[in-house]
């Protein structure tokens, strides 16, 4: 390559690298402000601030959903495998709200470490499969553990031992029967 072009190429690469470093630094600096996200374990242990607007999420623990008969208020517990926290929400629940599925909420933690959500959204993972496949997995899981009240029932995609507090995105792929806990 002739030297003029080499020099231009170098300048171009320097430009891209420079921007990259600048953005990386900016994002790193802002990390604290962007990532006001706390897992159930962090909320339960006191790591999360009380009275401040934060985001949090986890998997709805089966059997804990209680709806108030006179209002839209609903309470339930969420878990990430490490800890649990009680959530209170008043409003219409998202379509995909289900026991054993994930949610993400924005709200405040009160003195009793109860997460009072102002906004509640359903979070789903990256797995897609037809209902029959899901049922087959459930059956295989159910017959393996023999315990239908298992926390992980109905959630083939969430392998509890892989669940990470920072994300609800387990690394495993689908269609593999769960190990019983």
């Amino acid at each position: 390559m002739n030297p003029v072009r080499k020099q231009r190429l170098l300048l171009v690469l320097l430009l891209v690298a420079g921007v990259g470093i600048a953005v990386a630094l900016a994002l790193f600096a802002l990390k604290e402000n962007i990532n006001h996200y706390f897992s159930p374990a962090q909320m339960a242990s006191g790591e999360a601030p009380i009275g401040q607007k934060i985001r949090g999420g986890g998997i709805v623990v089966p059997g804990t959903v209680k709806r108030d008969p006179d209002s839209l208020k609903v309470t339930f517990r969420i878990s990430d495998g490490d800890g649990e926290v009680e959530v209170e929400y008043t409003g219409i629940l998202p379509d995909l709200f289900k026991e054993g599925q994930g949610i993400v909420g924005t709200g405040k933690l009160d003195e009793n470490r109860r997460f009072v959500a102002e906004e509640l959204l359903a979070k789903h993972d990256e797995n897609y499969m037809p209902p029959e496949v899901q049922k087959a997995i459930d059956k295989a899981h159910g017959s393996k553990s023999g315990d239908k009240s298992d926390k992980t029932y109905g959630t083939p995609s969430y392998q509890q031992e892989n669940a990470q507090p920072e994300s609800l995105q387990p690394k495993g792929s689908e269609s593999q029967p769960l190990e019983s806990q």
């Binding site: 999420g57 979070k123 993972d125 990256e126 797995n127």
Partner: peptide
């Protein structure tokens, strides 16, 4: 983005 931060958008299928 879906790996570095906690996002509502799920990870890669």
């Amino acid at each position: 983005s879906v790996q570095w931060w906690n996002t509502l958008h799920q990870g890669a299928t």
